[in-house]
Amino acid sequence: MSLEIEIKFSLNGRQTRLKVSPTMTTLAMLREKLDLTGGKLACGEGECGACTVLVDGHTINSCLMFAVDCDGRELQTIEGLATDAGLEIVQQAFVDHGAIQCGYCMPGMIMQARYLLDHNPDKGRKMTRDDIARGLEGNVCRCSGYTKVVDAVAAVVLEESPS
């Protein structure tokens, strides 16, 4: 009988409780146990960022995080970003700026972009295109060539701090 651990955590604002194997990754838990298939398994070793989710306000590669480690934490996935009112501002910017082609990497890319906008390490200064590109270094996209991705994030930078 293989070991299962009960964990409790907040998932997109809702308390969640379930049992997971100690070797299960957070990504597998989200996809297979919670039907949250927005985050993708594209490499499984933290090299592409397609599985990016927010844990306690910080993005991580959910393919590298064990599900047991979610216990007591706060998770936000791409499914928790949009509201009833519509797309979140970053999502809308990605749509409007044509950043999305096949879209497979986009849930991860958008979560990382959201994090970047909230955690501009140099808070006194507006992010430049180079800052944005650096912040998205861990997210591989094979369709867009990144230009429109950076366009979209740069537009949100302006929109969220217009001065």
Binding site: T37, I78, V95, G98, I100, M106
Partner: peptide, 15 residues
Amino acid sequence: PKPDAPDKATGRTRY
């Protein structure tokens, strides 16, 4: 903008 983009941006698209 592409018609499939909003679902792709929200993780709804099912591959």
